[in-house]
Design a protein around this nucleic acid. Structure first.
Lengths: 240, 240
DNA sequence: GCATATTTGTCCGTATGTATA
DNA sequence: CTATACATACGGACAAATATG
């Protein structure tokens, strides 16, 4: 009984350590949500004094959060000028989709090699998207679509691949906001992919991993082309 | 501790390099080099006061650097306890090699699809390794070996893939230091791969990309197995 | 081009909370 | 349980760079 209770105590204390987070981490989370949610659109300057006052944290704490967001490429840090929400170029979007091709394709391949895959999370994401579309919740549709791809990657059961994908998708949302207001709305961009998501699930349920990977490749190529087209021409990489 | 004090001495000698602007970034670079170079071995606690005093920077500035290193997984941040140089587990090494398989394999595939590849940087890395081995500079051999793989990835011409690989290799060096002093020295680990590096270059020169990718896979599997084997002896999750 | 105001970069002092001997 | 050491977070200060009129 002693060993059991002490073990339980240790677990609790370790759980607490994992759960607890400092102010800087909380601020980072908040700002990240604001950025990927579009409330702080690309190009916005994040003033230390303004943001710090709004969140009720000191400048030092806020700067720690800025460093993290800069490392995630969500903001750019210009010396003595401040931090700005990142403005993606068309080249950056192309690079992001190259990474997605690699990551998502490899994840499917790895899942196929192992064989035993639990598709419940993937399926749940697809159905959440279908419900959102049926009820006209287009923002939720976009979230469910990205969640679908995150769960596809999760099939590989690699912590680092998961983290990499999470950061990639967060960065990609910056691209969605750059072209928000244009012809490409959240609905018209994500809705057509609902059927393809469902089809991918069926292929995976049938253990046709190679074909799923191939369709995913075409899927991402289409999405990439669509996104690039929404970027006005003449917007090639410019060294700032 | 000896390693800590010698590292501290080196830190002091580099203090003059901190001239102007971007102090936090410079501190990050210095600490990163100390960590991947082994002067701050895994498990070392990085005291804010000690390190800050050695580098002549304030705790605020130092904390910004710690945040960045934490994001790169080179250190772990335990709330109210401080930051420690990361101690990799065997599982983490396996995950890192999974990522290497994906990244390096994909890079070769992408290079093959494009066709026009400039192998001069790859070749230079191989030859640097051969020179280092011939002259008994085993630390330089390790550096050249990692540089070889970095240049392989560079063939894909993707900024994000390059950055990802750079961070991955930095993290991997933590594994080398965990088993430093064991039977697996820098020489015995890296030297056998010189011939395989040379062989890979020849395959690429002959535009046999598919075969190069296949050999790279076997290559990395061998390295992974070798590294894991060196971990076995003292493999108990070090809980602080 | 100049003078001024604003903002960032960095450091310091300090109060509080947390972990550990 | 107490004491000590240290991380956390805040607020103030000043220099340096930048933006503004």
């Amino acid at each position: 009984m002693d060993s059991l209770s002490t073990a339980s105590a240790v677990l609790k204390s370790q759980r607490q350590r994992l759960v607890r987070s400092g102010t800087a981490d909380r601020v980072t989370e908040i700002l990240r949500e604001q950025i990927i949610g579009g409330l702080l659109p690309p190009g916005t300057r994040l003033s230390e004094e303004t943001i710090g006052e709004a969140l009720g944290v000191s400048r030092n704490t806020l700067r720690e959060a800025f460093r993290l967001l800069g490392h995630e490429q969500l903001v750019v840090h210009e010396l003595n000028r401040g931090v700005f929400v990142r403005v993606l170029t068309a080249d950056a979007v192309t690079d992001l989709y190259l990474l997605r091709q690699i990551i998502e394709g490899s994840a499917l391949e790895i899942a196929g090699r192992r064989g035993d895959v639990d598709l419940s999370a993937v399926l749940a994401a697809v159905e959440a998207g279908e419900r959102a579309a049926a009820e006209g919740r287009w923002q939720d549709l976009a979230t469910a679509d990205l969640e679908f791809h995150q769960e596809i990657v999760a099939l590989a059961r690699s912590p680092r691949l998961d983290q990499l994908m999470r950061r990639l998708l967060a960065e990609l949302r910056l691209a969605f906001h750059v072209m928000s207001g244009s012809a490409t709305s959240s609905r018209s961009f994500h809705e057509p992919y609902l059927k393809r998501n469902r089809r991918l699930v069926r292929l995976l349920q049938g253990k046709r991993y190679a074909q799923a990977a191939e369709e995913m490749r075409a899927y991402l190529d289409d999405a990439h082309a669509q996104l690039i087209a929404a970027f006005r021409p003449g917007e090639s990489e410019a060294a700032h």
